[in-house]
Write a protein that binds this DNA or RNA. Structure first.
Lengths: 165, 165
DNA sequence: CGCTTGCTTCAGAAATTTGTGAAGTTAAGG
DNA sequence: CCTTAACTTCACAAATTTCTGAAGCAAGCG
């Protein structure tokens, strides 16, 4: 079996996983191509692939790769790396750090909070709607703090489970 | 000033808030109409509106209201209520409970976890990619537990801040 | 210096999504 | 019962999004 050398993998099975995981991401709101590219990177042993490899693996054009990667980089879910002495670029999923990006919806939460503060002001803090909105605002502020603590507990938990990196 | 009677609000200002908050929701991935309907409900003093009121407020067809409400009900962000002795329906945002729905992405997380478990199996738990995926899986499992605890702390915090409901 | 490789940008075709009007369904009220 | 009010479903038109091929640009290499 090819498992002995540790390098061969069933491309069929990998592709099935890539597509099925990408489908979940799409369902959660991520655009199709970024989702597929991300899933492909996640399942790459090196944790990184070049643009050409991605294009071949997913059967998509260089343009599609470019667009997807821009999206993912913006969301801090992949890092772009220049291969020294080549103009190839590697796109890397930073192992333990990509899912931290998921919890770093901070900028989104901030904007929600701003909108809610405006809402409380517009509607009046003493109106029923204003009070309801103030409570919602308090919730977001609370969650924001809690998430930071949770991530710190996670790092601790991870180090104990998988060993410090 | 109309503020003295507590019932009049500047429809202009309210509408501006509705649209601006809806825009934030859209940016976060919610479809346009559900976002607008939800924002309108959130800014209604009663916390509820009828289909007709929503249609007039947002200038959309009954069909659009129907579709939006179905989406929101599915996501547990609004409750449908039948007005007794009438075939009007009220759509209500359940004040303190709607944002709990936000954290109840449990079903989504569950599906991610299932996909990740399949991924670990497909790729082999001893491969680098398999290990990375196993760590991601552990992260989601961890977060799932943490969120439950966080919500319980929130309810406590809320009761102390706003008084028990 | 010019060729070549590799990514990016652009314009457009194709596919998907969205919202509407119209017809359909259900149930209250006479 | 029959009428009518209120929501829902359906089919289609419009708008938006998505992906591609082609052209453009930048950087290594001979």
């Amino acid at each position: 079996m090819s498992a002995s050398d540790g390098t061969e993998r069933d491309p069929e099975a990998v592709s099935r996983f890539v597509e099925s995981f990408a489908a979940q991401l799409v369902e959660a709101g991520m655009p199709r191509m970024p989702a597929r590219v991300f899933a492909a990177l996640l399942s790459a042993d090196a944790g990184s692939l070049t643009s050409a490899e991605l294009g071949e693996l997913l059967r998509i054009s260089p343009a599609a790769v470019s667009g997807a990667v821009r999206y993912l980089a913006q969301a801090h879910m992949v890092a772009r790396e220049r291969e020294p002495g080549s103009r190839r670029e590697r796109y890397r999923v930073r192992g333990d750090q990509w899912y931290e990006a998921l919890t770093n919806r901070e900028s989104i939460m901030k904007r929600w909070e701003i909108a809610l503060r405006e809402g409380v002001a517009s509607l009046g803090p003493e109106t029923p709607a204003g009070r309801r909105m103030a409570e919602t605002l308090a919730f977001f502020e609370f969650v924001e703090g809690e998430i930071a603590e949770m991530m710190s507990r996670w790092r601790d938990h991870r180090d104990r489970t998988f060993g410090p990196s």
